[in-house]
């Protein structure tokens, strides 16, 4: 085997070998950590630096103290973006988790042809968010999109297209997130349910628990660790939702679908307010870590990530 040749050539000898022996664990980790610091910590530090300066286009001019932060806090559009992001997150995630858990509970006792059906079901979840958004754009387009024609117009849900007014536009962004992630979550819960021990369910049957009681008192508590992990992961991703907003609504109408990520994008690449955008980025970072660590702490005992 090729690796044998390499290993022989690299086989360390003498003091070098001792050094390797001692520090090998760290030498193996170092490149990955350095890379993560380069692409994570340094940009974050640089963002802090930028946020404290006045900028003109991409030029850093003078120290500005916390002026950028002050501007930001008094910018209603920033708060609006936070609000939109929160709405999307708070509505989309519980719905998709409950739907997926419900579907998984329907199917986990076994189906025929699961080996064909589960890859098919997974498919929407791994599509590029861009493709997912394009797909919905075609389905909801004008009066000729398949959903516009058969659903929206037929039941007179909204006039002027779903992207014409704020609430339907947010609703659509939420619906797309749900549509994209319910399949994966269903499969994840399905696998989680099949991994549960059978013994407590047998005991519960004899003890006289109804199906609802079994679900409430046994199944869901035993699934808590998984629910917590999936909640955390979906929370992280939904909070930075960008692609579907970019393709479908461009943050509109008005700022009604401007999420935090889209707000940041516009501040930089439309208004070139780099300093203020950096301040926003810093706040978003901090907010993100605070919220994630709250979520993490709430579920700490149930999360078995490490």
């Amino acid at each position: 085997m090729a690796t044998q040749g390499i290993a022989a050539a690299l086989a360390p000898r003498g003091r070098w070998a001792e050094f390797l022996q001692r520090y090998l664990p760290y030498l193996l980790i170092a490149p990955a950590l350095i890379l993560l610091i380069l692409v994570g910590v340094i940009p974050f530090a640089y963002a802090i630096y930028l946020s404290l300066h006045n900028t003109f286009f991409t030029d850093v001019e003078s120290f500005a103290g916390i002026a950028n932060y002050k501007d930001l806090v008094s910018d209603p559009r920033f708060w609006g973006a936070l609000r939109v992001t929160t709405i999307v997150t708070v509505v989309a995630i519980p719905i998709q988790l409950v739907m997926a858990l419900g579907l998984a509970l329907l199917f986990y006792r076994g189906v025929f042809g699961g080996r064909v059906l589960s890859p098919l079901l997974l498919f929407p979840s791994v599509l590029a968010p861009i493709v997912m958004a394009i797909m919905w754009k075609i389905m909801l387009a004008g009066n000729w999109g398949i959903l516009s024609y058969w659903v929206v117009e037929r039941f007179s849900l909204v006039t002027g297209g779903v992207f014409g007014s704020p609430s339907p536009a947010i609703g659509t962004v939420i619906a797309i997130d749900i549509f994209q992630w319910v399949p994966f979550l269903t499969l994840a819960f399905y696998a989680g349910l099949q991994a549960l021990p059978l013994a407590p369910f047998r005991a519960a049957a004899v003890d006289g628990a109804s199906r609802w009681q079994v679900l409430r008192l046994l199944t869901i508590p035993m699934l808590y660790p998984l629910i917590a992990v999936l909640f955390l992961l979906r929370f992280i991703d939904t909070f930075k939702i960008f692609d579907s907003v970019f393709i479908l609504t461009r943050g509109g109408p008005g700022d009604s679908t401007t999420t935090i990520s889209y707000y940041l994008f516009r501040s930089v690449f439309e208004f070139w307010e780099i300093g203020r955008a950096a301040a926003a980025a810093v706040i978003v970072f901090v907010l993100f870590f605070v919220m994630t660590s709250i979520v993490y702490r709430v579920f700490h005992k149930r999360l078995r990530l490490i």
Binding site: F44, Y46, L264, F265, V268, A277, A278, F288, F289, I306
Partner: peptide
Amino acid sequence: DIMLFIIASRMAPAVALIIPFFLI
């Protein structure tokens, strides 16, 4: 701690990182 650092960097929102990235 290393594992925590790794999962924390999975959480960073891309658009927030893009500002410093763009200038760098």
